[in-house]
Nucleic acid binder design. Structure first.
Lengths: 222, 222
DNA sequence: CGGGATCCGTTACGATACTG
DNA sequence: CAGTATCGTAACGGATCCCG
């Protein structure tokens, strides 16, 4: 069944919206930027999506070449971004920066997992990273594990435990969001709401500097 | 009437989509980046939008502070971006760059005016402008007039005739789009499909360099 | 004539129930 | 777990009508 509501305009913005303009589609892509995921994980991260819509959107994304389905270990099904799908990162980051200009809703629904924060953190860090920074960090937020790899000026982050991190940072979601919204000062957040274990001398300073700079982008714009 | 389909998630991308995620909204904003416009001009530029939807979207945009309505000369009504609305420029440009990765549709609808191209041209030029470039150009495409002002490293472009331009460039839509899509080489476009009148010595070279570099971004990505 | 408002058929979405 | 199936509701699209 072909999509019937299309702009069909000779305009690249309309062409983009014909692929990723439907409801939920951009949020699904944002989630997939945290790494491959199975259907149920996407569903729980998307807080409120109907399963038939998730099915439909994944099929559209596959038809347009932004997502592929593949088999993981134990025969489970994984959805994963293609290079084309991954090229939405700057777009999604700009969207996040724009959305950051509005006050959060009164009674927001909480997502079932924290995959949602990976894209914004990663892209923000890419904008502030220095060429000499080099470390592997594990970030644990409310018991969920993230790996952050920095080196050669590149930054990678994904929703997975780290192998042998130089640093392990532990924090929780609420104060982290508050700091990102600018509701509490960055240094206060880093001092009071973050625990750090450093396995490699001085890497904690590198990490804290980058982390603080990245989160400041959210709090005050770039 | 409050919008009923909202994500209400604690996520800045969802917050953005709750304001600009509806159908047509981003295309309206893109049009308004060319300068203030009246209802009927927006309608003709948007090729296929229903008037009730345009009314609805403009009201949502005004309620959210992205657009204001004001009276122009002869008592006409103009819609205009606020600073908040104008801050969608990077986002829209990333959207255009992403959409540029897909092939144009077979039988596209043509817009009733060319306001649509201003935002992409302006943002692309901002990415390639040199600090020493300084000129005012009038660009005429299929009889529609644009003003391009460059100086001090800044670039402004709007849908209006120029006062006393250093250069006047005349071209037409079809070959221009073809060049932007990479279907014909840039130098061939500039040589065969562009007429130039230069009123200030050497400003034509500055202009051509900038123009070529900006359009190359579309044709081959940045 | 510009700037909408109203009406109505169609499509998409949201919630839930169900199935291999 | 990974989706289908169903169905009520909301949004969209197209056309027409209205009013200063």
């Amino acid at each position: 069944m072909a999509r019937s509501r299309r702009y069909r305009l000779l305009c690249s913005i309309a062409r983009a919206l014909d692929r990723i303009g439907d409801r939920w589609t951009l949020l699904i892509l944002r989630d997939l930027h945290a790494g491959p995921a199975r259907f149920s994980v996407l569903e729980s991260g998307l807080a409120g999506i109907a399963t038939n819509l998730l099915t439909d959107r994944l099929q559209q994304l596959m038809a347009d070449g932004l997502v592929v389905k593949r088999s993981g270990e134990h025969g489970i099904t994984l959805y994963e971004l293609t290079e084309l799908g991954a090229s939405t990162d700057e777009l999604l980051f700009e969207l996040a920066m724009f959305g950051g200009r509005f006050k959060p809703d009164e009674e927001p629904r909480k997502p079932g997992n924290l995959r949602t924060i990976v894209l914004s953190m990663r892209t923000a860090m890419r904008r502030v990273v220095t060429p000499d920074a080099r470390f592997v960090a594990e970030i644990i937020v409310d018991g969920e594990h993230f790996t952050l790899e920095v080196g050669e000026g590149s930054v990678d982050m994904r929703y997975a435990p780290a192998k042998s991190p130089d640093i392990v940072m532990t924090s929780s979601y609420e104060p982290m969001m508050a700091a990102a919204e600018g509701e509490i000062p960055m240094d206060q957040f880093l001092r009071n709401h973050v625990e750090m274990v450093c396995h490699t001398t001085n890497k904690d300073r590198e990490f804290m500097t980058l982390m603080g700079a990245a989160m400041t982008i959210f709090a005050h714009g770039d």
